[in-house]
Design a protein around this nucleic acid. Sequence first.
DNA 1: AAGTGGTCTAGACCACCAT
DNA 2: TGGTGGTCTAGACCACTTA
Lengths: 236, 236
Amino acid sequence: MNAPLYLDVRRQILSSITLGKWPTGTPLPNESELSREFGVSVGTLRKAVEELVHDKILVRQQGRGTFVATHNVERTLLDFFRIRHNDGVSRFPEIETLSLRKISADENIAQRLHLVDGAKVYRIINLLNVNGLPAALDQIFLPAERFEGLNIDLFRSRSGTIYHLYQNRFGVNILKAEEQVRACKCGAKEARALQIPRSTVLLEIERISRTYYDVPVEWRQTRVNTLHHYYSSELG
Amino acid sequence: MNAPLYLDVRRQILSSITLGKWPTGTPLPNESELSREFGVSVGTLRKAVEELVHDKILVRQQGRGTFVATHNVERTLLDFFRIRHNDGVSRFPEIETLSLRKISADENIAQRLHLVDGAKVYRIINLLNVNGLPAALDQIFLPAERFEGLNIDLFRSRSGTIYHLYQNRFGVNILKAEEQVRACKCGAKEARALQIPRSTVLLEIERISRTYYDVPVEWRQTRVNTLHHYYSSELG
DNA sequence: AAGTGGTCTAGACCACCAT
DNA sequence: TGGTGGTCTAGACCACTTA
């Protein structure tokens, strides 16, 4: 017995989730039932669930049950939105979608999204306003095969966050992402959209977002005016 | 019984550590002994220790024991160094200390370090080379009261990382930090030190580092040339 | 009141490390 | 070989939510 039992249980639960046995937001069977199902003690089942909770794949609520995690405003603001106003307060941006088109991926995008060269991708351009001021310009690339049928109206009329839309309409659950941050100069497009002079210095953020098993499903490039905002990061 | 027992045990262990009962790097008594000491079961003791391990305050090693965590190159590189070469590889920077002086804190620094206005602070300026190329210029501010006796030779002749020096010579254990990242223009000093034209666009990183109980003990400002490097961040 | 997750216990056994 | 942390079990009881 080399591999711990709870890791095997964890793997089985994760597999059931990705296979759609329990859609996002639905409760799992209770702990004693699950432990019976897997033939392990409740303690071992709990250890497996604890790991999945830590990975934000499950959410436990005392007295209610254990649920497959869903994206919502709080989660996005807390985990996936790193731009803060200089006053330190984190506010949700107002997202204005400027365009949405289906195009062929260039080499760069195809590589990042693990697609074949020339595969179709959706390209969405958004303007982000924070406190009513244009703060960032945002380009999102999504593999067309996973997001078939996406259109600008769907994007604009979504009820929750962008990641909530991915989850609800396309079954794509974003679990984590990596970002690369660099300084860059302001192009003509950014100057116009963000209403700033060309001489302004911007922050460029490139993000790769991943779903289960670390599969990349979104690539973003965001350019931020850091005069009134900053990019926040926690270490340790 | 409102507060869980294991949180109380955790608090007591943390308190013992901060009071110096077990210096950094030394092993704690074994689990059954500790559980007897606190009058709880081994399971409860383990839950308390698990939390402290998660917070990187303790380190467990199967078969050896449980130790108060120490700073080393791996930890610094993994948790406290976010600058990567464009090839994605994380390399440890070569740190060249340009100056170290004791000065009076201005309002800004005093506020960030929770000091009274005009308190003495050490100001250290470093040039960071990655792959033999100047990549960043770094200003560190430390409260003099905690780092009494610091001098440039001590700083230059340290055997490990900067945080290792804090820990070993001054008993200051850095546990976490927050960073604010902005884009900025290149000043004359940066241009000279980093051997770049004034027109280069830089990344400015401000860091507040904290020890036990979230007390701030270091403030840094780093300016990075992001032509060959980027700032990396993980979300989720 | 019934059902859920959360805490705590006591003990058996395993895997790893030092000597 | 003896000591350490790691896994796993079975069960009692607590705290919270819902109806």
